[in-house]
Write a protein that binds this DNA or RNA. Structure first.
Lengths: 207, 207
DNA sequence: TGTTTTATGTCACAGCCGTGATAGAAAAAG
DNA sequence: CTTTTTCTATCACGGCTGTGACATAAAACA
């Protein structure tokens, strides 16, 4: 006999509604009332699962980060022993990893859109600063490890500075996300992947 | 005999105040009242120079775009006949042009910060969409022309696709702007220029 | 001078917002 | 059954928003 309401499920429904509002109208318009309406709930009901706006926002941001990092971890686990890969295989793996961060389909586009709005808000809203920093630091570490993997495998071009290349790839990915979300008709998914592939390829000696 | 108040100067003062508020507290908190306070004006006085919020925001965004594009045009005019440059000189010129877009000092940091907030808002606010698109399109054209210049001068590496490289450089610059503004302690001005220099250098055959 | 335009300041209104308080329905526990 | 907890729903308050209306003051003009 299932309980009529599953609190965990309810919170997920609310967060999904919040994401839809943010994608459609921006984080600024994601008030308790608009989110409750989007979720088909009464605001009183929503406030029974989230004590206040701060808790809702914090939970939503954590949920989104968990989803993305979960997919990344899954990919890494599925990869197995990456050191045993050939250079070309390693490059393909890293490419897939970076593509997970780009808005190449509706799901990832929504995530990136929300993520960008959250980060922009985190610049001036102390409530988001720590989380935004951890997220940025996490992808930064991931990218650095990915490039270090290529370097260990001998796939990386000679004379490349790992620090500089990590920053360059991280900023390129962020810039692609930004432009793909803000001007999707100018920078579509195809162009995005083409640029990413060209960049990663230019870091290697592969044909 | 100067008039006691110069309307044009007043509007500039108001826009400067708006920029300070946006940099300090975000575009969201830049209301007519907070901007008026920041400018040391009464809200009634402010509304004498700007009919409403929409006009103020529109004027402010245009002002910022004019400032940046003005500096770029100045650099291009000062450059003279670029086609007569050597490959190394052309690369230096293009580097300087791109550096004008990065938040390398307080003035540029403020401009980029405001610009990013405006663009984020433009995603969901139709009032900003046209301007945001024109600005993005302008820098896109500029970057493409800069790379075309290098290509004509023979400085560009063989086998590079101008379309892909334009997108790559544009997104890299945007990503550097984003990270430098959101995490200035992680990506400082030095790291920014190092990455930019490494990228532009990698596009050429220069030593 | 008087008149007109420009500039500044103040008030009130409706519309959101988050949130505290509270009531009542529904489900679970005793 | 009764009691308790969980859930849903509604009201009211203060705070902030843009804006229309208006009064006053200052400068420019005639």
């Amino acid at each position: 006999m299932p309980k009529l309401v599953d609190p965990q499920e309810r919170r997920r429904v609310v967060v999904d509604a919040l994401f839809r509002v943010v994608v459609r109208e921006g984080l600024q318009r994601a008030s308790l009332r608009t989110v409750a309406d989007e979720a088909g709930l009464n605001i009183g009901s929503l406030r029974h699962y989230f004590a206040g706006q701060a808790e809702l926002m914090d939970f939503a941001m954590r949920s989104m980060i968990d989803r993305v990092s979960g997919r990344l971890v899954q990919r890494i686990e599925d990869g197995g022993e990456l050191r045993e890969y050939t250079a070309a295989e390693q490059l393909r793996f890293v490419t897939g990893l970076m593509e997970e961060l780009l808005p190449l389909d509706d799901r990832r586009r929504a995530e990136v859109t929300v993520f960008l709005d959250f980060n922009a808000a985190a610049r001036t809203n102390p409530a988001f600063r720590d989380l935004a920093f951890k997220a940025a630091d996490g992808t930064r570490r991931l990218i650095r490890r990915a490039l270090a993997l290529l370097a260990d495998g001998g796939a990386l071009r000679a004379g490349l500075d790992l620090d500089v290349e990590s920053e360059r790839l991280a900023s390129l990915v962020d810039g692609l996300c930004l432009n793909a979300v803000l001007h999707p008709d100018v920078l579509d998914a195809q162009s995005c992947t083409r640029v990413l592939h060209a960049h990663l390829h230019s870091l290697t000696d592969l044909p």
